[in-house]
């Protein structure tokens, strides 16, 4: 979907600094409904910070983030409300260790969204079934593998019925054999038309899941292109350089 009819999220001139240090500079991006945006870029270029800004975990200094007729860059935004619509899963976003899998998943739906237990539980079980972990619903996080935990974290976010999902290197701390099971869940979401912003270092995955690739370097977006174009003939030298390093790493 390169030309979506409906723009869900529109970011204009976003600026973010930590102290004197500029981390995001003039970020512009439009995300269409059902679109999958993959964000690539070297370490420290601001990918995580960008996603965190979209969810109010980092205050921003300038720019606008249009979402549902609100500007999320304003200081008075009710992020409790926003976070129910923009779910996120991060590299080391831990599950709550003192709660079972099902309790982890139901906390948001029951306490934040005040849904009925029956209905929320039914949805949670359906989602668990989909990621192949229904039989682990009463387990504690410590009894699960890294890949299982990350799939549960995804289910926990999905059970809030978000409109947009943010993924920040969700497979980065996993053993190689577990990467696949997590990426498959995300691919499944893409097929269902979930709007997503995904930061990843898995290039094959980026290529197959992304509608558009956003390449960032030093706090700026250098190029936005289709996966085909980006991986075969990127238009900027920096992107080419970035891809070369990845090729080299592969050898």
């Amino acid at each position: 979907m390169t030309h979506p009819e409906e723009i869900l999220l529109e970011i204009e001139g976003l600026e973010k600094s930590f102290g004197d240090r500029k981390v995001l500079e003039g970020i512009n991006l439009q995300v269409g409904k059902g679109e999958v945006i993959v964000i690539l870029g070297p370490s420290g270029c601001g990918k995580s910070t960008f996603l965190r800004c979209l969810n109010g975990l980092e205050p921003v200094q300038a720019g606008r983030i249009h979402y549902r007729s609100q500007d999320l860059a304003k200081p008075d935004v009710d992020f409790r409300e926003v976070r129910q619509h923009i779910g996120m899963v991060f590299q080391n976003y831990e599950l709550f260790p003192h709660m079972t899998v099902i309790e982890n998943i139901l906390l948001g739906p029951l306490k934040v969204q005040k849904r009925s237990r029956d209905e929320a539980q039914r949805q949670a079980e359906q989602l668990l079934e989909r990621v192949g972990l229904l039989d682990r619903k009463d387990a504690y996080p410590r009894q699960l593998s890294g890949g299982q935990k990350q799939r549960i974290a995804i289910v926990r976010a999905l059970c809030m019925n978000p409109e947009i999902m943010l993924f920040d290197e969700v497979t980065a701390s996993l053993d190689p054999e577990m990467v696949r099971e997590v990426l498959e869940v995300i691919l499944g979401l893409a097929k269902q038309g979930m709007t997503m912003l995904i930061v990843t270092h898995e290039m094959g995955f980026a290529r197959s899941v992304g509608d558009r690739i956003v390449f960032m370097d030093q706090g700026k977006i250098c190029e936005i292109s289709s996966p085909e174009q980006f991986f075969t003939s990127p238009s900027t030298e920096r992107a080419q350089h970035f891809l070369d390093i990845f090729q080299y790493d592969k050898l």
């Binding site: 969810n55 991060f90 306490k111």
Partner: peptide, 8 residues
């Protein structure tokens, strides 16, 4: 942060 991200 993971608590915040589910809207608590």
């Amino acid at each position: 942060e993971s608590g915040l991200s589910i809207g608590l």
